[in-house]
Design a protein around this nucleic acid. Structure first.
Ligand code: SF4
Ligand code: SF4
Lengths: 137, 137
DNA sequence: ATTAAATACTATCTTAAAGTAGTATTTTGC
DNA sequence: GCAAAATACTACTTTAAGATAGTATTTAAT
């Protein structure tokens, strides 16, 4: 139902970048548009770079660019990189090793929706977030 | 996608109670069956009592009983009581004042599912969690 | 070469959720 | 009356996420 702040930031940053005409993004630029704490965003950017989503260009005129084609970056990969996806596989009631045969009291009502969400995050790519209709990042 | 530990506990406790033949539940009893930290559970129980879901019976032979009919207790009310439901209305990307007219990059794919979840929590009651099939609490 | 503008690194602080400990109070059975 | 078994209350500790601060490094324009 809710991601960690860090995942939110990561998705907002990358979603913002993919919806822009720009190629290179400085931390300063991202901070002013996304209102994410400066130093926190910078750490997150190097983290995203380490994970191969973006590439950093150091020095003057530097910044960040995508490191690979956005069609190959799945949202679940981003979340997995910054906070781990594991905590979401064991779901609403925090249980794990769940199955239809040994369900918690919410399973029949919730598991189908949970699966939709997980499936969505697994199949949606950054490229899918590109749209002219987007007004908020 | 995930509730706070406290909400998980609250739902597991009440879901466990509604699926039992017992009428009165001591904290000790709940702790042994649900493996929730003793003192934490006790605090949560008095909190749930203050919120009118259960009633505490003090003294020897005491414990907790439902304070009203389980068909009148909606899951969203429980979550709202222990951690607040507000944080879930502004969804995946942590934005608020969302609408179809000013969507974030995930809106079209995610909002429908989010609405299903919120709707589920609003309409499901504790009574709906009662089933012979439940194996884990 | 020097400076300016950018990222990288490391260490620390803050905050809120979660968990723990100890004491006080209530009620019933004997 | 008193002990036993339960809940209630208050204060503290721990943990992890989030945020901040300061310094070092890299690179290009001049
Ligand atoms: S809803 Fe199903 S998958 Fe989720 S915690 Fe309950 S049993 Fe496990
Ligand atoms: S998915 Fe829709 S409702 Fe959720 S944060 Fe984005 S714009 Fe708001």
């Amino acid at each position: 139902m809710k991601l960690s702040k860090t995942s939110e930031y990561a998705l907002r940053i990358l979603g913002f970048m993919i919806n822009s005409e720009k190629q290179v993004f400085t931390a300063r630029y991202l901070v002013t548009y996304l209102h994410i704490p400066d130093k926190y965003l910078r750490r997150l950017m190097t983290d995203l770079a380490r994970n191969g989503f973006i590439k950093s260009i150091q020095g003057r005129e530097g910044g960040y660019v995508f490191a690979k084609n956005a069609t190959t970056i799945h949202l679940s990969e981003i979340i997995d990189a910054v906070e781990g996806m594991d905590k979401y596989t064991g779901c609403l009631l925090g249980l794990n090793n769940c199955s239809d045969d040994s369900p918690c009291s919410l399973h029949y009502a919730y598991a189908p929706i949970r699966n939709q969400v997980l499936n969505l995050l697994d199949t949606l790519t950054l490229a899918d977030l590109k749209s002219l209709k987007i007004k908020r990042f």
